[in-house]
Design a binder for these strands. Structure first.
Lengths: 415, 415
DNA sequence: CGCGCCCGGATCACGCTGTGAATTTACCCG
DNA sequence: CGGGTAAATTCACAGCGTGATCCGGGCGCG
């Protein structure tokens, strides 16, 4: 597979650039002085690295603060407009393209509805490409000012190079995609700069990333963001980076078995977590127990369920299943934090969180459970684009903002 | 917690030493010539690094092979006696201390039985210390020729520094240990060289490591080694290193819930995997369904179960549970390989492997399942010591064989 | 038997790195 | 206007990997 790759003394500089850039990105404006201890670099190196970064336009000065009686320290920050990022959310019902500056402020956004059911991949690719062109135009950003594009898709993304096609391949049963070489198709249109970093990952994972960077997961080094919507998924963060597994399809928590031989799940197996706590399955169970609703969308229906005093038992049972599922995560991953997200998760949260915590405590081992907190997500489902944009951003920071041209094929899931 | 640490140009050399050392360790004798492409180092660097390592006594020449018409290449290999490793297995019924050379050949071994039930930690520590002294004496190895000691314990090892005590703290319900600061106790005896690297980890995990290094897991970068004995555990390897979680207690697969509200498990929860496929639980279930045995030990009893033609249904059910449990691992971790080990796993393997594969295929998602192979372990339960010795060895290789003196507190779980 | 060839390995000049002390710069205060 | 102070830069130094060059051992050809 991948040959061993470690190189020269130049990489030191790249790493130090990355360290400085990251520190400055996350921990606000800092002076060169403070940067030293924080990055374990000597004052000399800080000076060199910073002036290089300033020359490259990645850093800018941001005022200064007095230092009693001496030269004031000048603060540094990442220049928000030194590059732009795009996030794409390919959902089951719409495509959403959003343009951000480096600090992930929204600059422009377009939404394109998608007809129900199967989506011809070619069509979707066209929509994405024109959406990108549109947001760039709206915000008056040149295409080569794009640092990278992240795309969240509904389905499993295979980052392994199997199949011959270069780049990410998407298997999305929900929208009828089977081994769609999304990255190659997008590139082949020739509208994007040929070397533009392109990242494709599961939409649930990108949502999880957003939650980790800017939501309830902030600060945790190892965490699991659970996403409960119509179906159920999860995004596992180990040591600050998404855990990918051998082919990028790790974290399929929804199809974890909670009852051997139990309810039939839409994946074909029996007793999956999703078959009990996914919104679709939950409503189905409500109907079976005599519930009914008038809303035409799942979201409204679920709200009606929550308002029904007769659904208490159903909800308690759901909490037990969800708690047991979370306990599995606690036992297997031993995270510091578990975030319950997804539109259904956020809707159910206020009602279920406490019973879920109790169930998780009962089902999990004491020791790892004591290390974990279970919290509600803080970001809505629209954060998929933000999370997707996070992918090229992470790469950008990790490279120290270097011109990304060389070697290493750019593939989804690259950390 | 841990401040950011990255340093100087000297680390480059350390890394390259490590790369060369590792390559040579795993892929047998190689010439300097071959080493170049394999480590992505220039011939000059290879020359420098190798001569340094030879001067340090870590490498030695191992014959030469003709190169048609030119100067023959001299082969290099790691010097097996340039250092020694000790592995300790603290089991529920005995302590086992084994001494290895660098290639993990056994040099000496002592076994000390432990009385049943609770074990006073102080006693165990004494036994370990004297065991170490004994194997060193038997093999005529000086204590400072020890590269490090690895210890496998039955219980959860907390590597986080909570509690004030420096070093690994062990929570072992099975032997009545609660927050035993094993590392500190061992060091406080003062018999070991004060800077000797000491690693403590769960015995199941060290067994898993052994399987990864020398058994059925060889070559896989991400894998899960499942360990079925009286109880059930697992060792998760992500990208070649053990996945630890936030406090080192990840991989508690045995207490994953397979049936919400199901059988009571000895951990207190209901429906754990262990409550169905652990040997203890399996025998219990056999008894409930009318089985009986004459052996006094679980191993013999399990053999009798396997020989009983009337137990077919029970075994099929067990296979379904085990398959579902493995499917959970496949869905969550997306490994390239799953190894079924542990004494009970190995005993049940020939009978159960096929039905387990079928069940796993049914319960897991198609895509990740297609990426995985499910295999039997190849190492017996005695490999705990080998796996434990693997811990300091990994550190030794990662440090490029550098004198391990400085900085970084030496703690279990350090990768 | 001797010569030339060929290839593995060592050497060396070069450009690059981070370090840390000395130096310069910028601002406040009296 | 000059002294004091602390931030930021500069600079000599040691160390690294690179890759061209050099050395030397053994084979095959004449």
């Amino acid at each position: 597979m991948a040959g061993p790759r470690r190189r020269t003394v130049r990489d030191l500089r790249r790493n130090n650039r990355a360290t400085v850039l990251r520190k400055l990105y996350f921990d606000g404006p800092l002076s060169r002085q403070e940067l030293g201890p924080l990055t374990a670099l000597s004052s000399g190196s800080i000076s060199n690295v910073v002036s290089e970064l300033v020359a490259d336009g990645l850093l800018e000065e941001a005022g200064s603060v007095d230092s009693d009686g001496g030269r004031p320290r000048t603060l540094l920050r990442v220049a928000p407009h030194c590059g732009h990022l795009a996030g794409v959310d390919i959902g089951e019902t719409r495509v959403r393209v959003e343009l951000f500056d480096l600090t992930l402020n929204e600059l422009a956004c377009v939404d394109a509805p998608l007809p129900d059911g199967h989506h011809d991949a070619q069509d979707v690719v066209r929509i994405v490409a024109s959406g990108l062109a549109q947001v760039l135009g709206e915000a008056k950003v040149a295409p080569d000012a794009l640092i990278g594009v992240g795309i969240g898709v509904p389905g499993i993304v295979d980052a392994s190079d199997a199949g011959g096609a270069v780049g990410a391949v998407v298997h999305g049963q929900a929208i009828g995609w089977d081994a769609v070489p999304l990255e190659a198709m997008l590139r082949d249109r020739g509208e994007l700069p040929p070397e533009l970093p392109l990242f494709v990952d599961n939409g649930a994972k990108t949502l999880g990333l957003a939650e980790m960077w800017f939501g309830a997961g902030r600060g945790a080094r190892t965490a699991v963001v659970t996403l409960i919507g119509s179906g159920v998924g999860a995004c596992v963060i180990a040591d600050g980076v998404p855990y990918q597994g051998s082919s990028g399809s790790a974290g399929e928590w929804g199809h974890t078995t909670l009852r051997v031989g139990g309810r039939r799940c839409r994946c074909g197996a029996r007793g999956c977590l999703e078959a009990y706590v996914g919104a679709e399955a939950l409503l189905e169970r409500w109907r079976e127990s005599g519930g009914h609703w008038t809303s035409t969308d799942e979201e409204g229906a679920l709200a009606e369920l929550l308002a029904d005093p007769g659904a208490g038992e159903l909800l308690d049972e759901t909490a037990e299943f969800l708690g047991a599922g979370i306990a599995d995560l606690v036992n297997l991953f031993n995270p510091e934090r578990i975030v319950v997200g997804g539109w259904a998760g956020l809707l159910l949260g206020p009602r279920l969180l406490e019973p879920v915590r109790r169930a998780a405590a009962a089902y999990a081992l004491r020791h790892p459970y004591a290390q974990t907190t279970i919290e509600l997500g803080r970001l809505g489902p629209d954060a998929v684009t933000v999370g997707a944009a996070t992918l090229p951003l992470a790469r950008f920071l990790a490279e120290g903002g270097a011109a990304i041209t060389s070697g290493e094929p750019i593939v989804s899931g690259a950390s």
